[in-house]
């Protein structure tokens, strides 16, 4: 018997089932098709502004930094400010995101590098799919527009997040993701990012900048009235 058949039949023997029982099949079918939300967390069930404030507070307590911008057009200047204030070279790694390409980078001295990171970049910028208020977590989805390597390889990770894409809890974010990608279908990678990389492996003292970015900076675009 194949290992697969062996393992499955051993599980069934241990559980005293055949795998054909209708109620069990129905349980599994229903669980997956309805995907019940489970227990909700009170802190995320807030009015809109409360969720936004909670996101900021939680992201900062996870040691991310955050700048609020009045418009999307303000992104290049904000990036330039950030690079300057951290004494970084005026270079930025980005994917092929038409939203970012449509911005006026010419007004800054920033040298744009397109495509996935090769591990030599000091700073990179990606778009977040969403931000989850309950823990200040950014949700990044892999694509040519926003390559996964840009989330992890540059020393300084910058992320654009639209205020309108903030949800209170993870479950609301999944609901939005299913609307975008279809039920049961996932982008190749979904990265939840809560603060910059860190390690506590030496004497249990938390140090920032283990293998991923040493700093995480969020550019939050305010909702237009």
């Amino acid at each position: 018997m194949s290992a697969r058949a062996d393992i499955l039949s051993n599980i069934r023997r241990s559980l005293g089932v055949t795998g054909e029982e209708a109620p069990r099949l129905t349980n599994v079918e229903q669980r997956i098709s309805t995907a019940p939300r489970g227990l909700s967390v009170g802190r995320s069930q807030l009015p809109r502004q409360g969720q936004i404030d909670l996101f900021k507070q939680q992201a900062e307590s996870a040691l991310a930094s955050l700048t609020e911008l009045d418009s999307y057009e303000a992104v290049p200047a904000a990036v330039a400010d950030y690079l300057r204030s951290n004494n970084l070279p005026a270079a930025l790694r980005i994917g092929h995101d038409p939203r970012l390409d449509g911005l006026d980078w010419g007004s800054t001295a920033i040298d744009l590098l397109h495509g996935p990171s090769d591990g030599q970049d000091m700073a990179g910028l990606n778009h977040a799919f969403s931000g989850v208020a309950e823990t200040g977590t950014l949700v990044m989805t892999a694509s040519a527009e926003n390559p996964t390597t840009i989330n992890f390889l540059p020393d300084y990770a910058l992320v654009v997040l639209h205020e309108k894409d903030i949800t209170g809890d993870y479950e609301s974010m999944w609901a939005n993701l299913r609307q975008t990608y279809g039920k049961g279908t996932m982008p190749r990678v979904v990265n939840w990012v809560t603060g910059p990389s860190r390690s506590g492996d030496i004497e249990q003292v938390i140090l920032l900048g283990a293998h991923g970015p040493r700093r995480l900076h969020i550019l939050m675009i305010k909702e237009q009235d």
Partner: peptide
């Protein structure tokens, strides 16, 4: 800090 959900290999539209 990082919770990563991976589903299958690189897709036609991916660059990494």
């Amino acid at each position: 800090v990082y919770t990563t959900f991976s589903t299958g290999p690189r897709r036609a539209t991916d660059v990494d």
